[in-house]
């Protein structure tokens, strides 16, 4: 049952977006987020939306899956909307009753913010849906590599990510086993008050932690045996390769960014 969980939210596929170099995808996502936050008018956001829609269609991610990733966002959206509506003052006053005062600026801000958050999630979901966790880790290691000069343990960080990804399924399987073993001896995880349920988890966590440490010990030994000595002088089996399509993609992204900047300036001038 829990064995089937997917890591992260990678949706395997072979669309053009899937095949882009993960480094470029991360940069493009960053540019996209920048687009959303520098655009101060609906036209700019509309351009951002077109970009997101364009990428989404190319990625061939099912529409339902995208909706699913937006679902947890609803409470956040409602929360920020209420705050923006109530506490931002300025412009024409639409409603004024007791302490509630809804103004033009408040409404504008609410709409902008909601759109930004939705697009933000769509953009970053597109990245994680179309890029496997391993590729992401590699790309992050590469992009952070300039920080190695500042003594930042970039390689170690990436190694930790890889090992974590590698062991998540193993540990989940183990949790499953421990739970079954406890259930067989009468443990009850499904009923009772919340505190009782949390307490029931302790007998699972303790053996899980112990075995995780044992695994860490074994793995460290196995890594030493295979000549692991940190990131220095290391080569990689899979080289990240960037090609023409990556450059084209990034140029398109930059064109969109430029369009938003131009629109910003034009609208200010009006």
């Amino acid at each position: 049952m829990i064995k089937d969980i997917t890591l992260g939210q990678y949706f395997p596929g072979s669309s053009i977006i899937h095949r882009l170099d993960p480094r470029f995808k991360i940069i493009m996502t960053t540019i996209f987020i920048a687009m959303l936050f520098i655009s101060n008018n609906l036209w700019g956001l509309l351009i951002g939306g077109v970009f997101a829609l364009f990428t989404f269609v190319l990625s061939k991610i099912p529409f339902k899956l995208m909706l699913k990733s937006l679902k947890p966002l609803i409470p956040i959206l409602i929360f920020t909307s209420i705050f923006n509506l109530l506490f931002i003052d300025g412009g024409d006053v639409y409603i004024e009753w007791e302490f509630i005062k809804i103004t033009e600026d408040g409404v504008n801000m609410t709409v902008y913010m909601a759109i930004r958050i939705i697009f933000l999630i769509i953009g970053s979901s597109l990245l994680t849906y179309t890029t496997s966790p391993i590729a992401l880790t590699d790309a992050i290691e590469y992009l952070l590599s300039p920080f190695k000069k500042l003594k930042m343990p970039v390689h170690e960080f990436a190694m930790m990510m890889t090992i974590a990804l590698r062991f998540i399924p193993t540990l989940i399987e183990e949790t499953d086993k421990i739970m079954s073993a406890q259930k067989a001896r009468g443990a009850d995880f499904e009923s009772g008050k919340i505190m009782e349920r949390i307490k029931a988890l302790i007998p699972i966590l303790v053996p899980l932690f112990i075995s995780a440490f044992r695994r860490a010990d074994d793995l460290a030994l196995a890594m030493t045996c295979r000549c692991y000595r940190g990131g220095e002088g290391r080569t990689r089996l899979k080289q990240l390769k960037s090609g023409l399509k990556d450059y084209i993609a990034i140029v398109i992204t930059l064109v969109f960014l430029l369009a938003i900047i131009v629109i910003n300036i034009l609208i200010q001038d009006l």
């Binding site: 793995l219 000549c227 290391r234 089996l237 899979k238």
Partner: peptide, 21 residues
């Protein structure tokens, strides 16, 4: 379980070679 490092079989096989440069 405790001696495979990478998340993909071929990358795990390559692990020692990557370390050796």
């Amino acid at each position: 379980d405790n001696q495979l490092v990478a998340t993909v079989v071929e990358e795990d096989v390559a692990f020692a070679l990557e370390n050796l440069g």
